[in-house]
Design a protein around this nucleic acid. Structure first.
Lengths: 222, 222
DNA sequence: GTCCGTATCATACAAACGTATGAATGATAG
DNA sequence: CTATCATTCATACGTTTGTATGATACGGAC
């Protein structure tokens, strides 16, 4: 059996995707749209233009495909956020870059939202790719905060809890986006909308970290 | 067909629950544990000690039971948060009470986490009870923030976005609790743990709102 | 040419699903 | 008592599910 996990993007290279790649793509979209249990192998193979047996052949089982989809979708997310967080030397700048990359990547890949949320909703232990992703992003943030605390530019307190408080901003803005739109009257449709939102989140975080940074303007009170 | 929606708690009154109530309770637990599609009517009626046909009889269909479960679980949540938010006159005190009630209620009713997350993960429109709950909680927070802005105790900015930033704290602390434990090393097991967490969130929010309130101590820098 | 491993295909199968049906049961009213 | 009603029950039906099976097609090695 062929067990390569990074199938690469044959489509971007102009070549037509292999059956394996088509299954990964169809699986990502359909799992995200309807959830694992509500998505049938038949709908996936149908959408991918593959035979019913293709999932079993290439991934062993429906669950095998699902895990491959998760890994394929989350690995780039980890990479993008890591690169951003490590692109600056000043901790607060790193945190800001982290927030922007986190926010932007989930915006560019809307399927990630449902894919991750479904896992968070289940009771059991998290799948390895999901756990790795959270661990990675969370660790980056914690280190940045600890560095800022040593430097004196970030207020005291448990760095893990501060990391949660910071990551909460892009997390809810993206993971709960449908709620914000349907029940909060907050649209993320236009680029201006999104810029206002991310700038607000960054300002809130800088203030919350006790760090009135350069891009923070909180003279406030209308 | 009997279509009462608030079945009340016969158990608390000492009487043994009716079939209808037993179905609601079993449905709440099982839907939360495994999700809607992965929970069968047979497992629900089995767990409730009822006949296979009981769900169809009392709720019309599996989906009917599901909606009744959602409404039954979310109505008290709305009520508790509303009472807390309106219990104080000072906006910042109201926000603090909101945060504590929000956090505490989700802690007391752990099934709500999975129940809500599954809905947030789906693509389609939110069920009415879920939408109502978010709208209610979100609206309370926005009004408190607007009042604080008029008063001059809360910094400027779009009150809706500030409300999201504030609500993000109890939301991730509870909705993403398994992640925080499994991938963030943050435990909410003991009462001390939880107190440190909620106090940290409140401090972060007060600072983020540009409002160094009475219970905020941000001289900072270790 | 033959051989062989990989991949695709149509089809079959048992299990589980949500729901429908009609008979039994039990309490209440006349 | 009988009649009535809501409820419970066992069972059956038609789908859909994930997976297994065995045949077929293709492509390079020799």
């Amino acid at each position: 059996m062929n067990d390569r996990i990074g199938a690469g993007s044959a489509r971007a290279a102009g070549k037509e995707p292999t059956t394996r790649e088509a299954l990964l793509e169809a699986g990502r979209e359909l799992f995200a749209a309807a959830g694992y249990h509500a998505t049938s192998i038949r709908s996936i193979t149908g959408s991918a233009g593959a035979n019913l047996g293709a999932v079993t052949y290439h991934f062993g089982s429906k669950e095998g495909l699902y895990h491959a989809v998760l890994e394929n979708a989350l690995a780039p997310f980890r990479r993008v956020v890591r690169v951003a967080a490590e692109s600056r030397t000043a901790p607060l700048e790193g945190i800001e870059a982290f927030l922007r990359a986190f926010f932007q990547h989930l915006l560019d890949h809307p399927e990630l939202r449902a894919l991750m949320l479904e896992q968070l909703a289940s009771e059991g232990p998290l799948p390895e790719p999901v756990k790795r992703t959270f661990r990675s992003n969370f660790g980056l943030l914690r280190k940045l905060i600890e560095a800022g605390q040593e430097e004196g530019t970030i207020c005291g307190g448990d760095p893990r809890l501060l990391a949660v408080a910071v990551a909460a901003q892009p997390a809810v803005l993206n993971l709960l986006r449908p709620v914000l739109e349907q029940a909060g009257g907050i649209s993320t449709a236009s680029r201006e909308d999104r810029e206002v939102i991310i700038e607000n989140a960054i300002r809130f975080v800088r203030a919350g970290l006790g760090a009135p940074g350069p891009s923070s303007d909180r003279e406030a009170v209308r």
